Amino acid sequence: MLSDAGFGADLDLAIQALKAPALAATEDISRTESPEYTVGRLLDSLEEAGTDDNLLADLEWFYQPLLDHSRRPIALHREHARNPARFVNLVSLMYPPDPGTCAASGDGESADEETTDNAASSRASSAAWTVLREWRTPLPGSIDGHLPTTEDMLRWVESVREKLTASGRARVLPRVLGVLPRQVGRGCVTTRRR
């Protein structure tokens, strides 16, 4: 129950309330006196109640523009650490495919198809940048709050490398993984220390 948090509702109702705007409900959340506070408290209560991280991360992503200056997307950061594909999805919102790649040419069906709404695309890119910029913990490769081993981190980085390369974004690898490229060849990137 969320009654201890002052909402007097059960978890299912809180989840339904948070999902409604994402499902194109007609209610205008901006009419609430302090939507940032209310939504932030609901998300905090769901987290304290042990709500699934994947669902909580989806809700944090949807409400990120509203909560940008009032609440860190903690579950979303945990999901990025656990799931390299989710990290790559955010990177893909920020960076178009490399010129000359299949993903950039628009051949066939692609998850990278440009949206006709440039404003929405710009907002998504900005939200993705904010989420990634603020991500400090947990470390990549962390699962269930445990520090990753070296092997866990390397697997995470390799998975990101493979997924970014497959999506036609190999050129952003040095930027998003925080390394300086020295030589790119034979499908691998070697780096020098800063």
Rank of each mutant, 00 (worst) to 15 (best):
M1Q: 07
G6Q: 09
G8P: 00
G8V: 01
A9D: 03
D10C: 09
D10T: 05
L11M: 14
D12L: 14
L13H: 10
L13S: 14
A14L: 06
I15A: 07
Q16V: 07
Q16L: 12
K19N: 09
A20P: 00
A22Y: 01
T26D: 13
I29W: 11
I29A: 13
S30M: 08
T32C: 09
E36S: 12
R41K: 13
L46N: 02
A49P: 02
A49G: 05
G50E: 05
T51C: 15
N54M: 08
A57I: 04
Q64V: 03
D68I: 08
R71E: 01
R71D: 01
P73N: 03
P73V: 04
R78S: 11
E79P: 01
H80Y: 15
A81L: 06
R82Q: 12
P84S: 01
P84E: 00
A85W: 00
A85F: 03
R86Q: 11
L93M: 15
M94R: 12
Y95M: 10
P96C: 01
P96W: 02
D98R: 08
D98K: 08
P99Q: 12
T101E: 08
C102W: 10
A103W: 01
S105D: 10
G108S: 06
G108M: 04
E109L: 13
S110M: 05
S121R: 11
S121L: 05
S122A: 15
S122F: 09
R123V: 13
S126A: 15
A127E: 04
L132T: 07
R133C: 10
E134L: 14
E134P: 00
W135G: 02
W135H: 02
P138F: 08
L139P: 00
P140H: 07
G141P: 07
S142H: 04
S142N: 06
D144Q: 12
D144P: 00
D144T: 07
G145V: 04
P148Y: 03
P148V: 06
T150F: 09
T150D: 13
E151F: 09
D152K: 09
D152R: 11
D152T: 11
M153T: 15
M153S: 13
L154T: 14
L154W: 10
R155E: 07
E158Q: 12
E158I: 03
S159Q: 08
V160T: 07
K163V: 02
L164C: 09
R169T: 04
V172D: 03
P174G: 11
P174H: 08
L177W: 01
G178F: 05
L180G: 12
L180S: 15
V184S: 14
G185R: 13
R186E: 14
G187A: 07
V189Y: 13
R194F: 14
